Amino acid sequence: MTTGTLSGLDTRSVISLEALNNTAALQTRIDRKYVVGTRLADVILESFDAEARVLEMSGRRSFTYNSVYFDTPNLDSYLLAARGRRRRYKIRTRTYVDTANSFLEVKTEGARAATVKERIPYDPADSHRLTNEGLNYINETLTSSIGYMPSGMLQPVIETRYRRITLYLPASESRATIDCGVTWRKPGGHALELDGAVIIETKSGHAASALDRHLWAHGIRPSRISKFATGLAALDPALPANRWHRTITNSLAFRQLPH
């Protein structure tokens, strides 16, 4: 099965989810994100001459992800990120739509800007709310990792949806993802779609991967973008968007979607 709009990946060999998790789980990693025009992304991926295998499950090579992010009424998590504070965190449910699996995830920033992601299985029916079990898990995880639990009731503040292609890069035992058709929606509110571009994210140890270096060789540099925070800032221009102002202004084009 093809990878949809990115034909440059159609001839790549494949890897199973089990093999991917055994070789490149990388729950603690350095993330580098790039906003790349769809046509340019296809050219770059087609000319990438290092080995890369595409995740395939049940004949599929792209998968729909739905994430719901939670924050306090004062948007403490967002503001910590916007102001570049240490000990910041993100809380979300992530649903793999094609397999109907869901997780509650807590992401924190560890040493040297490494992202640490911890998660537990979660009922997809609860993806838009936090159960008592979920709140206990968040409390334990944040208290252990950053030393405190946010004050104020956590509530859903933004939902994201996209199709993801995942690559395994054997040379560095790392992975990369390409997210297509990225949309952001406020609960009960309006929605935006990233127009004419994909988000490529490399997830590796401290050393850059071959794909990072290939992107750099084409003049593509990492962007300050967070699906959670950039999406909130784009949906609500009144919010401070310190860290993402240049990305939103210069790198992103949006298409308004119906409610």
Rank of each mutant, 00 (worst) to 15 (best):
A171H: 15
A208T: 08
H206T: 00
C180P: 00
H214T: 06
K227Q: 09
R221G: 09
V182R: 04
P170I: 02
I199R: 06
R213K: 14
L169F: 01
S226P: 07
C180K: 05
S174M: 04
T177M: 11
D236L: 14
A241E: 12
R224L: 12
D179T: 09
S223E: 10
R161K: 14
K186F: 12
S226E: 10
V198W: 03
R243G: 11
H190D: 14
G181Y: 06
S172P: 01
R161H: 07
E201D: 08
A217R: 14
L232T: 04
S172K: 08
A234K: 10
K186R: 15
T230M: 07
P237I: 04
S172D: 09
H206I: 00
H245L: 15
P187N: 06
R164P: 05
T166W: 08
I220P: 05
H245V: 13
T247N: 02
E159I: 14
A234Y: 11
L192W: 06
L211Y: 00
A171M: 13
E159N: 13
L192H: 01
S209R: 03
A208Y: 10
L192P: 07
K227A: 07
P237E: 01
W244R: 01
D236H: 12
H245R: 15
S223M: 07
S204R: 07
D195Q: 15
L169Q: 03
E201H: 09
L215P: 05
R243M: 13
L211W: 08
R185F: 02
Y162L: 06
A207H: 15
T160P: 08
G188T: 08
E193A: 15
S223H: 13
S226T: 11
T247W: 06
D236F: 12
E201A: 10
R164M: 03
E193P: 04
A171N: 13
D236K: 11
P187W: 04
S204E: 01
R175S: 09
A238D: 14
A238C: 03
L215N: 05
G219T: 01
L211N: 03
D236R: 12
G188K: 05
D236Y: 12
T247D: 07
L194G: 08
I248L: 15
Y168F: 15
G181N: 11
A191N: 06
R185P: 07
A208F: 14
T249L: 13
I178E: 13
A229I: 04
A233E: 06
R213D: 11
H206P: 10
A176W: 02
L235V: 05
T177E: 12
I248D: 06
H218G: 03
E201W: 10
F228R: 08
S204P: 01
R221K: 13
R164C: 06
R161D: 02
R164L: 00
A208H: 15
I248Y: 03
C180Q: 15
T166G: 02
L235H: 05
T177P: 09
A191W: 01
I199Q: 11
P240Y: 08
L169M: 02
R161C: 13
S226D: 10
T166I: 08
S223Y: 00
R175A: 02
S209N: 02
I220W: 03
P170C: 04
S226G: 01
N242E: 14
E193Y: 00
K186M: 15
N242C: 08
V182I: 15
